[in-house]
């Protein structure tokens, strides 16, 4: 089962719980088919760098999961159908990416992550 990471940007118009409910709908759709969610990260409302569909802020949500390959297409059809989702981006994670996410979760970057920091030393 390949590991994937999906970022979705929801429209800011909907209230907090409808946003949560929309996200819950997608994670349920994932777990129904047997995908295993590794991590869910909610960034909440963030300012967009450029207006998307005339909106300047977006509700960001990140999901990292392990899923069979054919599920991604179904998921993206759902995203296209749902008008609450402004943008979505699904990435297949390679071993460097999963290692990076693992280190990020374990807080290896908590100290000021200057690029010059001896990250390699860890």
């Amino acid at each position: 089962m390949q590991q994937y990471e999906t970022v979705i940007v929801l429209t800011p118009l909907l209230s907090e719980e409808t946003a949560k409910e929309a996200i819950a709908k997608y994670s349920k759709l994932l777990t129904d088919v047997g995908a295993e969610i590794v991590q869910e990260d909610n960034w909440g409302l963030k300012k967009l760098a450029y207006p998307i569909q005339k909106k300047t802020t977006g509700y960001y949500h990140l999901t990292e999961y392990r899923a069979p390959g054919d599920l991604i297409n179904k998921l993206e059809i759902e995203f296209r159908r749902d008008e609450r989702v402004l943008r979505f981006l699904t990435i297949a994670l390679d071993k460097h990416a999963t290692a990076y996410n693992e280190k990020k979760r374990s807080g290896a970057f908590n100290q000021k992550k200057t690029v010059k920091a001896e990250e390699a030393a860890k």
Partner: peptide
Amino acid sequence: CRFKKNGIKYIDYKDANF
């Protein structure tokens, strides 16, 4: 190349200020 020097293997697209 700062990536080779610091041993950075993955560039995170979500890290905007990097």
